[in-house]
């Protein structure tokens, strides 16, 4: 093959490359979308958990919102205070204040206090058990105890305890709400950690009928309604319902005469991690 042919090939390919390179270079100039470089930087400082507890689609979307000053760093429930301060310092904004929120279970019916009327031997997930006679539990509203919530939690914040109740560890919980969607019985609710008053029952039955099924069920006796500040608690469908818009009126006194300890005053963790609940069930 002659040298000329070789050179021609190089020249043609080189020429084509030059044309495309010019085109790309021009396109890069003309079509450039300017993006705030701080978005990348902030996004690098965020935990990359993409849990969406802040209300944005993921950490990147949250970073965009931060840079756009549409939210505050403290809205991230995953970062600790130092990390939040770092982001705030970088952006030169106030860290903001966020209410620490946690997931709470609206059931306290562990295997020691709730009646089990049949043995469930099917596939060991709550979703599967819910399809078969509510896992054999006497109460069809109660916690199935098979840990779908613990599986769903990305932060290892839920641990199943000895009596089959999910224990949410407040320090680890980011209030992302994955457990709320995972629970087939809709037993989780996300609430501020400083809302201490909680009715740990969802059974719509009342009186002896529900007491026969579970020792810690709300039997709708109505004592807490009388003991609490007026208007804070009312009875509805066999359950005490707390009006959380008036939560500042709450007082531990509301729980004092509850015959089943269905209404509780919580400080931090909801259930003991290790010990069985049997001792505390009937106060």
């Amino acid at each position: 093959m002659s040298t000329a042919a070789l050179l021609a090939a190089v020249a043609i390919l080189g020429g084509v490359a030059l044309v495309f390179a010019t085109f790309i270079a021009l396109a890069d100039r003309k079509l450039k979308v300017w993006e705030d470089p701080r978005i990348d930087a902030v996004s690098g400082m965020l935990p990359a958990a993409n849990c969406a507890a802040c209300g944005y689609a993921g950490c990147r979307a949250f970073a965009e919102a931060l840079v756009g000053a549409r939210t505050q760093p403290a809205a991230c429930t995953v970062m600790n205070d130092d990390a939040i301060q770092d982001v705030a310092d970088y952006l030169g904004v106030a860290a903001g204040e966020a209410v620490k929120r946690v997931a709470r279970l609206l059931c306290a019916g562990g295997v020691d206090v709730a009646m089990q009327q049949a043995e469930y031997r099917g596939y060991p997930t709550c979703a599967a058990a819910a399809a078969v006679a509510s896992g054999g539990k006497g109460c069809t509203w109660g916690c199935l105890g098979l840990g779908d919530c613990a599986d769903a939690c990305d932060f290892d914040a839920i641990v199943m305890n000895a009596v089959g109740l999910p224990v949410v560890i407040p320090e680890k919980c980011t209030a992302c709400g994955d457990c709320v969607t995972a629970c087939p019985k809709d037993l989780f609710t996300i609430m501020p950690l400083d809302h201490h008053l909680l009715v740990q029952c969802k059974s719509l039955l009342a009186g002896e009928e529900v007491e026969a099924l579970c020792r810690v069920a709300c039997n709708a006796c109505g004592r807490c309604v009388q003991d609490a500040a007026p208007g804070l608690i009312h009875m509805e469908d066999g359950l005490a319902v707390i009006d959380y818009s008036k939560i500042e009126l709450a007082d531990p006194k509301a729980t004092s005469r509850c015959p089943t300890a269905a209404i509780v005053w919580l400080e931090g963790i909801q259930f003991p991690l290790e010990r069985s609940l049997a001792g505390s069930a009937r106060a």
Partner: peptide
């Protein structure tokens, strides 16, 4: 493998999602 039971749970799960 309890396939039908899994599918039943999945149908409910999908509806919830």
């Amino acid at each position: 493998i309890p396939l039908a039971q899994l599918f039943q749970a999945a149908k409910v799960g999908l509806r919830r999602q």
